[in-house]
């Protein structure tokens, strides 16, 4: 069986500075795979390249049997790859409901969309309560919920979450992580980028540690959780 997402020797540069220097990994359907690493390791760049916002200078991305490397961003979504970007990036002057509808921008089935909007409200009840409110008025955690809900609206085969816990209070962070666990249980395939390595590793099937543009270490989430080097560098133990 081939993997849902296969990344081969991907290289990305900003001008003359290479930010991702040839990384390879894959994501199998139903798995949760996580990329961890410090700031500037190239995690966000990797996700932005996968979703087509950045163009790679080399390598190959294969998603669901198709080569993605040259496909523009808005067509990648149609293939079933959703991306909840770092910093949430909800549309602040649109309402919550409009934000969710935009997540389903490419879908034509009105009844299905309504159903999925309601599912998002079930998943995050607070969103349902404020559906007519401008998204910019939400708190950080609520915005993160909206961003995740919005990404789910395209019925993705693979959900990419970039730093979902960034800047959130510990309680909110737990809530978000619990949601990811719930999504995993429902069978959603997830590629998760996180700085909170402890939480990410503990729910990941596969994990990769990135350092200055390369993958330093790979293994199952549990393996890495117990790896001494990882514990020292990323889990703050010594």
């Amino acid at each position: 069986m081939t993997a849902l997402l296969e990344v081969e020797d991907l290289r990305v540069a900003y001008g003359k500075i290479e930010a991702v220097k040839g990384i390879s990994f894959s994501v199998e359907a139903g798995q949760v795979v996580t990329l961890i690493g410090t700031n500037g390791a190239g995690k966000t760049t990797t996700l932005r390249t996968l979703s087509g916002l950045l163009k790679p200078i080399g390598g190959r991305v294969r998603f669901d049997g198709k080569v993605l490397t040259r496909v523009p961003a808005h067509k990648i979504v149609a293939l079933g790859l959703a991306h909840s970007p770092e910093g949430r990036h909800i549309f602040p002057r649109l309402t919550i409901e409009e934000n969710l509808k935009l997540g389903a921008y490419l879908r034509k089935d009105t009844t299905g969309i309504t159903k999925d909007i309601n599912r998002a409200y079930d998943l995050f009840p607070i969103l349902g309560e404020r559906r007519k409110q401008a998204a910019g008025t939400l708190s950080g955690g609520e915005q993160q919920m909206l961003a995740m809900g919005r990404a789910l609206m395209s019925q993705p085969k693979l959900l990419m979450l970039d730093e979902p816990s960034m800047g959130l209070s510990p309680i909110m962070m737990q809530k978000i992580m619990a949601t990811i666990v719930e999504l995993k249980a429902q069978g959603t395939t997830i590629l998760l980028v996180e700085q909170n390595a402890q939480a990410a590793l503990s729910l990941a099937d596969q994990a990769h540690v990135m350092e200055i543009g390369t993958i330093k270490l790979s293994g199952t989430g549990q393996d890495l959780l117990h790896d001494e080097g990882v514990r020292k560098t990323y889990l703050g133990e010594d």
Binding site: P72, P85, R93, L102, L106, S154
Partner: peptide, 24 residues
């Protein structure tokens, strides 16, 4: 309209609009 919404989204955050599948 759907296009009108996409238009507002593009004005507010073009990169994210692309992630929604909007051909900016």
């Amino acid at each position: 309209s759907r296009t009108g919404r996409a238009m507002q989204a593009t004005a507010q955050d073009p990169d994210t609009a692309k992630l929604m599948g909007v051909d900016t």
